[in-house]
Simulated scan of single mutants.
Amino acid sequence: MKKCSIGKVIYWILAVLFSAVFIYPVYFTVISSFKNNNEIWNTMFAMPSAMEWGNYISAVFDVQIIRAVANSFLFSIGACVVVILLVTMAAYVVARKLLKCTGFLRLYYLLGLMIPPYAMLIPIVTMFTTFHLRDRYLPMIFLYAAINFPMSFYLITGFITSISKELDEAAIMDGCSTFGIVFRIIFPIAKPGIFTGAIMAFLAVYNELVFANTLLTSKAMKTISVRLLGLQGERFTSYGPMFAAIVMSIVPILIIYLLFQEKIEGGAVAGAVKG
């Protein structure tokens, strides 16, 4: 009993410490969004003396953070849809060895994990410039989908490999086509892995900066990361609107997490177990 009580004390101490470490950045960001520069630097831990609602007005109209959040969501959701559809079909072909070159495909997608995407920045920029693909939504969506393809491919392939082939044979006996097997049989069973891959792709695209900053020159298409980067000045930076914009960019993600909490955590845990 004594050991158990000591263990619980240590557990709660560590829990409080870790909670403070993770909560502090959120607390600092929120209170700083209601301060001016002097208060942010002079009274970092204190509550604001007066609520600077003008920071949020500036974030909406000057920074145009709402448009930036919409653009980031469009790129993220579009890339997720493409990744889910293409990766599921490719993973099924490789997992079931329907082609002779499945071994080559595994090595080919492995290169996508080994080579950093930003190592291909110059050829990608050249291609986008040559074919006039800059400042267009579809090319950016397919680019982001291609970047996140390899990781999702290996994750979903592991799930499909663990599914019994007898289900495929039973579906074929019932007259189901290959596409029917993938989207009627495999897709529902491998949903945890597919959901995990979609989460990873969504977050990667939502937070991406380099390609968005390089390939998107139109102000109307700027994403969150690019907008926040543009707030950094050479001589002076107004941090209040910057923190307000950060808060407004975090809120949609928190809402999505609260709405789909069980599926997100279930998919992540299932993905970890399968991995």
Results as ranks from 00 to 15, higher is better:
8 K>D: 01
8 K>A: 09
9 V>W: 08
9 V>F: 10
9 V>N: 00
11 Y>D: 10
11 Y>S: 15
12 W>E: 09
14 L>Q: 06
17 L>Y: 07
19 S>L: 14
22 F>N: 12
25 P>V: 09
26 V>G: 07
27 Y>Q: 02
34 F>K: 11
37 N>A: 02
46 A>H: 08
46 A>L: 06
46 A>M: 09
55 N>T: 10
55 N>Y: 04
56 Y>S: 04
56 Y>I: 09
57 I>E: 11
61 F>C: 00
62 D>V: 14
62 D>H: 12
62 D>E: 15
64 Q>D: 15
64 Q>S: 13
64 Q>H: 10
66 I>E: 00
71 N>R: 05
72 S>C: 08
76 S>G: 11
77 I>G: 05
91 A>Q: 03
91 A>I: 02
91 A>V: 01
92 Y>T: 11
92 Y>R: 01
94 V>G: 05
95 A>N: 04
96 R>M: 07
99 L>Y: 14
101 C>V: 13
102 T>F: 00
103 G>W: 01
103 G>N: 09
103 G>S: 06
107 L>A: 13
112 G>R: 07
115 I>V: 15
115 I>T: 13
119 A>V: 14
123 P>T: 12
126 T>Y: 13
127 M>L: 13
131 F>D: 03
132 H>I: 02
132 H>S: 13
133 L>F: 13
135 D>S: 08
137 Y>T: 14
144 Y>V: 06
145 A>T: 10
149 F>A: 09
150 P>A: 07
150 P>G: 11
151 M>C: 04
154 Y>M: 13
155 L>N: 11
156 I>E: 02
156 I>T: 05
157 T>M: 14
162 S>C: 02
166 E>P: 01
170 A>T: 12
173 M>E: 09
176 C>E: 02
182 V>I: 15
182 V>R: 05
185 I>A: 11
185 I>T: 15
186 I>Y: 11
186 I>V: 15
187 F>C: 13
190 A>N: 03
198 A>K: 01
200 M>P: 01
205 V>F: 04
206 Y>H: 08
207 N>Y: 03
209 L>D: 03
212 A>V: 08
213 N>W: 04
215 L>K: 03
217 T>G: 14
220 A>H: 06
220 A>F: 01
221 M>C: 10
221 M>Q: 13
225 S>V: 09
227 R>D: 04
236 F>R: 13
242 M>L: 15
242 M>H: 07
242 M>R: 12
243 F>Q: 01
245 A>S: 15
246 I>P: 00
246 I>V: 13
247 V>T: 12
247 V>D: 03
248 M>F: 00
249 S>D: 02
249 S>N: 06
250 I>C: 11
251 V>Q: 05
254 L>M: 12
265 E>M: 15
266 G>K: 04
266 G>D: 01
271 G>V: 09
